[in-house]
C-alpha cells in the first residue's frame, strides 16, 4: 500500500468511526428532557429545589390529592391528583421517605386538563405530596399513607 492510499483509507476509517460514534450517542440525547439529577436526589427539600429552583410552596385546598390512608402493598399505591387551578403547567409527585423523593412529573399542554392518576411504589409509611405549578407558583397538597408491606426492598 502506498502512502497516499494509506492516508486516504485511514481518514475514511476515522470518518466512519466518528459517524458511528455519533449514531451511538444519539439515543441518549432524546432523554435530555428527563431530569436525571432531580430523580437522583435523596433529600426532599433538595429535590423540590432542583425541580423548581426554589422551595417556595403554598398549600392549597384547590389541589385535590387522592391516596389511600393505609396501603397494604407498598408496591402499588394508587395516586390521583386534580386541581381547579388554571394555567397548570405541571404536576409533580414527591414521596418524603422514599430513597429518592421525586416519584414522577406530568407536564401539560394547553389542551390537557390538570387531572392525572398513576400507581407508585413506597418503601415505608410516608407523606405523599402533589405539587401543582400554576401561573408560575407552586401549590401543594400532602397526605400520609401508612404502608404495611414495603414496596422497594427485595
Amino acid at each position: 500500500m502506498n502512502r497516499r492510499n494509506f492516508l486516504k483509507n485511514s481518514l475514511m476509517t476515522a470518518a466512519t468511526i466518528t459517524t458511528l460514534a455519533g449514531l451511538m450517542i444519539k439515543p441518549k440525547r432524546v432523554y435530555a428532557g428527563w431530569p436525571k439529577e432531580s430523580f437522583d436526589i435523596t433529600d426532599l427539600s433538595e429535590s423540590i429545589k432542583s425541580v423548581y429552583g426554589h422551595d417556595n410552596l403554598e398549600e392549597s385546598s384547590k389541589v385535590k390529592l387522592k391516596v389511600p390512608d393505609i396501603a397494604e402493598n407498598g408496591a402499588i399505591v394508587p395516586v390521583n391528583v386534580k386541581t381547579s387551578l388554571d394555567n397548570v403547567e405541571s404536576i409533580m409527585l414527591f414521596v418524603e421517605n422514599n430513597p429518592q423523593p421525586l416519584s414522577s412529573g406530568y407536564n401539560f399542554s394547553s389542551k390537557s386538563r390538570p387531572i392525572i392518576g398513576t400507581r407508585i411504589k413506597m418503601g415505608k409509611t410516608s407523606t405523599v405530596m402533589a405539587a401543582v405549578k400554576s401561573n408560575g407558583k407552586i401549590y401543594t397538597s400532602a397526605k400520609e399513607v401508612k404502608i404495611t408491606i414495603g414496596g422497594c426492598g427485595g
Partner: peptide, 26 residues
Amino acid sequence: ANGDEVITVHWGPAVSKNPYLTFVYS
C-alpha cells in the same frame, strides 16, 4: 392527540411495575 402533544410524563424508578397512567384532555 391527532398528532399534537398533550402530555409529557417523566417517571422515576418509584413508579409501580406494569405502570398505569390516566390523563384528561379537551
